[in-house]
Structure formats: C-alpha cells, structure tokens
Amino acid sequence: MAMTTIGIWVAAILTLAIYSFLYRDNPIYKLAEHILVGVSLGYFVGLYWHTTLIPKLWVPLVEGGNVLVLVPLAMGLLMLTRFSLRWSWLSRVPMAFVIGAGAGVSIPTAVDARVYRQIEATMIPLTSLSSVILVVGVAATLVYFLFSVRHEGALGKVATLGTWFLMVGFGATFGYTVMARISLLIGRMQFLLGDWLHLLAD
C-alpha cells in the first residue's frame, strides 16, 4: 500500500515535470526526459532477457541441448560487429537473414489480406447510393495513385475525384486524431485529479 502511495506521488511529480515544458523548455523537463530515455531502454533489457534470451536461447541450449540455436546465436554475435570499422560488414548477414525471411513470409499473405480480400469486398451489388459511392471512391482513389499515366482528360477528372475521397479520409483521420490526443490529456487529468489528489468522484 505504501509503495502504491509513493508510486502515485512519484508519477504525479514526473507528470508535472513533463507538463512544465508547456511553459517553456527547462532543466526539470530535460531531467525527466533523460530519465525516461534511460528507463525505457532498461525496460527493454529486462524484458528481452526474461522473454527471449533465457527461454529461447539459454534454456534450449543449456537445458535442452538444442545445438541448432547456435546458428541464431552466431548470427546475433555478428550483429555486434557493427562497433568495429573493419568487421562491421558482417552485421549484414543477420540483417539479410531477418529481412529476407520477413520479405518472403509477407508476399503471399499481403496479396491475400491487403489486395485480394479488399478488392473482393468492393465487388458488391450496387443497390444503394452508399454502395455506389464506395465502389466509385475506391476506383477513383486507385486512379489517383496511378502515377505511371499522366492525369489528363477524363482520367484527370477521376483522379481529382480520388483526391476528394482522400481528403474525406484524411479529414476523418484528423478528427479521430484530435479525439485520441484529447483522450490522452483526459487520462492524465483523471490521474492527477483522481488518483493523486482524490478530487474526482469515483
């Protein structure tokens, strides 16, 4: 309980330290910012240690005798050559491994999830105004992205229509972004006024 109370006070002081930036950049904000960078990085160390290094490398190798994990271990060690001017090119090997495998797995699934299923969902009966707008909107937006052809004449008009649809999309995104940012502020105010100062009714 005491640790919770201390924690809430620490969190409140750090919250106010960050908010002090709104007035102007200052040493208290800078200190909080630098602590945050360090702690965030330390967070990764603890997390990777317990969730990956120990269960995926140490336990299989030492307790399970799985020598196959020596392969990623060797590749991982090559990654550390980045700090040597002479040998840093070796770090390209694990990079190539991860990037190549990632590219390979993404192709068939991207075709299905991002292209095929999306086109399929656009092949709908045009029974309402909304369905017509949806189909026209997708086509016009795609025409706008067709950069290999000059946007002139009828194509230009369709591309312009595409930009209008895009503007609606960006406008909706802006509206939601405003909502998201305000939600974050509300959350912090609920913390300061409720959890810390106990001024809000539960």
């Binding site: 797995v105 699934t109 999830a113 999306q118 995104t173 939601y176 909502m179 940012r181 939600s183």
Partner: peptide, 28 residues
C-alpha cells in the same frame, strides 16, 4: 495479414482513435 489471412483466425479489435480510420476497410 498473418493470423487472419494465413490461419483463418477470427479477429475483433480495439484501436487507438488515431489509427481507427485505417481499420474501416477491414471491418467492411
């Protein structure tokens, strides 16, 4: 892309508002 398209996993989602508009085509 990976659980849904490849393995047929049924998915529902909660999203930060800033990303919500991106998910409407997938919802549709």
């Amino acid at each position: 892309q990976y659980a849904g398209a490849r393995y047929g996993q049924r998915i529902v989602s909660g999203a930060a508002a800033v990303m919500a508009t991106v998910f409407y085509p997938y919802l549709d």
